[in-house]
Design a protein around this nucleic acid. Structure first.
Lengths: 340, 340
DNA sequence: CTGTTAGCGCTTTCAC
DNA sequence: GTGAAAGCGCTAACAG
């Protein structure tokens, strides 16, 4: 059996209170002698407090839940790393929850985490969440009174703390970069349009076009889902529209585009320019290193944890919205438009 | 406040005992009427048992700890996914622990997980663990009496349940494939040689050479560390040794090799054949899809969870060693040896 | 300075 | 059929 505080009490002949006090540094008026004795005994007996018991009485577990769609997705894996790294620094732990982008799983994990007494939730909403579903999740967390911060995917109406990227700016910069290279027919492969971030990227795309007095054409916009396959599928459609460049709303989609183009014997960037979004690890080491918009997802994970813990410790729910600026990373997948 | 069992007691006028009994399906002799009433009340009051309290009395949390080096590494991300998926299926949770391959973190996480009352640990030892350190970890878990299963990285002496890949076979098949293509000077870039798995892959390499009556040459073996950089560094050395093919002990290293070769203007597989190990997601979508040895890491994660939970439920520590067979995945990075 | 006591939310033994 | 009571390991008022 593990040593308990009682064991120390028996061993030292002092009461559990005194022990608890000493071990928690709340021993303002305990004699140094007793303190030393207790500390020594605790060492000798190899005492470690039972965190379940502590959690039960203190209503604090120093544990957070991380809800995301899929850790095996590099982007989220980096998020998870940032989150866990920061938690470790603070002595906290993280319970990992994959929803596979299913909204009901968002809900059920929120409940389970509440049952386990987590102190907070880092919530990266599932992809299939429309506004109504998203609000449902938010309200559940609210009802459960668990501090939370939304990360990456957010919702205007939620009125909560969120850590996000200025996606409009990202979409804008990507498009502007393409425009600057002379491209005028720029296709895009979006993510799910229910998602705020996908909408924002599209807004940025439109804004860049407007600035150049170019009209926005529905036909150049292929509705994808952030998966590689959707990039793959988008190519045939966009090629028919005679685009000279494609802006994929995430890197994974860009890979799909790239693979399909290659399959069709088309070269990037000679025949077609390609730009991604996210800057996941592999984008750099590809044969044609991908020009992309970097989301500092690892740092965002860290920041989200900081906000969350700060909120928990202060006992208030912050409503800050921390916005990270995306960064255009120019590599080799974009070239000037071909002369006809 | 959350509804407690007491609230239901007040609400229904029945004792907490009865409620607990009913809610846990242990109500063999409670009248159907009372049962229904309690169940209904629980529903109405939105009752959910406090898992901390349950954990405290039952000494069961239905939570496991997953210790690995780095979730942002695709290989481990897949492991984590398999683990979490299987846990979810069983209604369990997983606490994620990244050690960054630091042995002291293995130790500290083991302690922390014990403090939190996890029911078991999935342990993927850190890279810097030599035999002594590894045993230290194992012994700590043992002392804490936590059921555990080692995954991917293992230790002969540990005498515990482990889920691993037959790495000798993997190394053998990779090498044999290269030999079959006519290669005779095959370089390898190993992982850390303290690791059992790296040793095994090398054994497989040797075995394949022996079968062809080829002598094993130290000079063709570059000691890497499973990182991309080590593949990068290995190239210059191995090229001097006039190898015609390189067997990288993991895909990440293979990418490094590939990148460096490209930098030097060498083509894979025309100038040099390359084979990896792991078959992580990206290997397939590279420009030159990587021939590699697949480790079914996702499935291994699932299996490890099954073993672990089985052990926990049965209350015994299984000492089974589940071995998965690796599979050679032939793609485009290996070609016949060039005629001089 | 230190100990007694109650209580966190639940399970479980035993008595009625 | 149901309830009282003890206890899991700990904290925190409150006494003394």
């Amino acid at each position: 059996m593990r040593t308990t505080i009682k064991d120390i009490a028996n061993y030292t002949g002092v009461s559990v209170t005194t022990i608890s006090l000493v071990l928690n540094n709340k021993a303002t008026k305990i004699s140094q002698q007793t303190k030393d004795m207790i500390l020594k005994a605790a060492q000798e007996l190899n005492y470690r407090p039972n965190q379940l018991a502590i959690g039960l009485v203190k209503k604090r577990t120093e544990t957070i839940g991380l809800i995301l769609s899929d850790v095996s997705n590099v982007f989220f894996a980096n998020l998870a790393k940032g989150v866990e790294d920061e938690c470790r620094r603070k002595g906290w732990n993280v319970v990992l929850c994959n929803t596979n982008d299913k909204h009901e799983r968002d809900l059920s994990y929120i409940q389970v985490l509440a049952d386990k007494g987590v102190d907070g939730i880092l919530f990266c909403m599932s992809k299939d969440s429309n506004k109504k579903k998203a609000m449902e999740s938010i309200q559940l967390i609210g009802k459960l009174k668990i501090p939370f911060v939304m990360i990456d995917r957010f919702l205007e109406e939620a009125d909560c703390c969120s850590v996000i990227v200025n996606h409009k700016q990202g979409g804008y910069e990507a498009t502007k970069h393409l425009l600057a290279q002379g491209h005028r027919r720029i296709g895009c492969v979006t993510g799910p349009m229910e998602l705020e971030d996908s909408k924002e990227r599209l807004k940025g795309y439109k804004k860049a076009l407007e600035e150049m007095n170019l009209s926005y054409k529905e036909d150049l916009v292929y509705k994808g889902d952030y998966n590689r396959e959707s990039g793959f599928r988008a190519v045939d459609h966009l090629l028919k529209q005679k685009v000279t460049a494609i802006f994929a709303f995430n890197d994974m989609t860009a890979y799909g585009v790239y693979n399909r183009l290659k399959q069709k014997g088309l070269d990037v960037p000679k025949d077609l320019s390609l730009i991604g979004y996210d800057d996941i690890f592999f984008s750099e080491i590809l044969d044609v290193p991908l020009t992309t918009v970097r989301q500092p997802i690892y740092d965002m994970g860290k920041e989200a944890v900081r906000q969350l813990i700060e909120g928990v410790e202060a006992g208030i729910d912050l409503k800050k919205c921390i916005t990270f600026e995306p960064k255009l990373i120019v590599r080799k997948s974009v070239a000037g438009v071909r002369k006809k």
